[in-house]
Each structure stands twice: as C-alpha cells, then as structure tokens.
C-alpha cells in the first residue's frame, strides 16, 4: 500500500505528509513534479507549501507540472487524491475541484489549532471519522478563503460534497467550508493540515491521522 507525495518547487509540507502516511502504516513514496510517472502508488497527496512561490496565483503554475497530467487522468479513473492547503489550491486550479482559494479576509498569514466538523464521512479520505465528528488540526495559510458562486456552493451542499466545515471561521471562507470533494469522493481538497496532527509530541492532537487511515481502507476495499 503506497501513498505518493508530490514535491513541487516550493513544496514545504511534503516530508510531513510522507511521515503521516508512514505513521498511518502506508509506504510513503516521494514523487517529483517533473516526472509524470506515479511509481505505482495507490493514492496521492499534494502537500502544502508555496509551490512556485505562489507567484501568479497559488497553485496556478504547479497545475501544469508533468506529474499533474498523470494525476488528473488517474483521478478521473478513481485514484484517491488529497490536496492539502497549497495542494487544495492546485486541485482547484486543475479543475479537479470547483471554486478557488483567495487571500484570508484579514489579509494575514494565520497559524492556529483549528476546530472542524467532518461533514461527509463517506469519501476515500474521511471514512474513518464518525458522521459530524469534531476534530482539531493545524490551520496555516495565507490564501485560505474558499470562494465559489452561489450555484456551485448550493450544488456542493446538495451533493454532500462539503467534506469539512470550520467551527469558528478563521479566514472568510464561504459557508465556513474547509474542505470539499469531487462527485465521486476520491478527490478531496482540505485547507487545514491533517499531516500536522498525527503525533501528540509535535501536533495539537492526533485527529488528522484519520485522513490517512481512511485512504488505506478505501484502497484495500477497492
């Protein structure tokens, strides 16, 4: 069972995502942005960071990386993909997920322990959580405010694709949305960082581990 973690130029939480995958019991595989080969991984994490310095727009350049061509194709075939923070931005820029992430409404970078409610525990990345499970994981970003037009938001809500919601909106995200999925539930974008909440020693909780254990089960089940 292999979870691949892509390193773009400017990725920062790639080693952390690999550590989280390993803590969950998976074999973590480093994937390189310039290499279209996914090395046989069963799931992919697009990690946090400032790929390409967030220049132009966050995620806007990374989505053209050779590795993304393969990921976009395989995601369509059901490969579980989790985009965390900058990875969420890349997924939106790649049109694997709708909407966009814009600057926090307070215009500052924010790093805090954030409470969330898991709204959909049927996706590939959230099945290990209970319905309406409340968790605390790390939030840290500059461009974390999720926006979309009303129709898209209504559709996301209606189809149960709001995966996690903030309890106490930290950045101005519409309808307190912290994470969403595609229709099939294999692609999830999440602004907070579950990979930083997998060890009591270094994280606020171990509440983030569920994302990684969920995908292990999803892969085994398929």
């Amino acid at each position: 069972m292999k979870i691949g973690v892509v390193t773009f130029p400017g990725s920062l939480d790639d080693a952390d995502a690999r550590r989280a995958a390993a803590v969950a019991g998976a074999e973590a595989v480093a994937l390189w942005h310039g290499d279209a080969d996914l090395l046989g991984v069963d799931a992919v994490v697009l990690p946090g960071g400032f790929s390409y310095g967030d220049y132009l727009r966050a995620g806007a350049i990374s989505r053209f990386a050779p590795v993304m061509e393969t990921i976009i194709k395989k995601a369509g075939e059901g490969l579980p993909v989790l985009g965390i923070c900058n990875g969420f931005q890349v997924l939106c820029e790649s049109h694997l997920l709708p909407g966009a992430l814009i600057k926090n409404h307070h215009r500052k970078f924010v790093c805090k322990d954030q409470r969330l409610r898991i709204e959909n525990n049927t996706t590939a990345w959230t099945s290990d959580y209970d319905a309406n499970h409340e968790i605390t994981i790390v939030l840290k970003n500059q461009d974390g405010s999720f926006v979309a037009d009303e129709a898209t938001l209504d559709r996301l809500e209606g189809e149960g694709r709001v995966v996690a919601r903030y309890l106490g909106n930290p950045n101005g995200s519409y309808r307190d949305i912290a994470g969403i999925s595609n229709e099939r539930g294999n692609v999830v974008g999440l602004m907070p960082h579950p990979e930083h909440a997998v060890e009591n020693l270094t994280g606020p909780t171990t509440d983030g581990l569920g994302f990684f254990t969920s995908v292990l089960k999803a892969v085994v089940a398929s």
Partner: peptide, 14 residues
C-alpha cells in the same frame, strides 16, 4: 504576532 508564523512545518516542533 506569533500566529503569523508557521510553527508546525517540518513536523519536529516539540
């Protein structure tokens, strides 16, 4: 001040 700094990245901040 300090909430504008990432204290978690690299995963080794005890």
């Amino acid at each position: 001040v300090t909430d504008q700094y990432d204290r978690y990245v690299l995963g080794n901040s005890v």
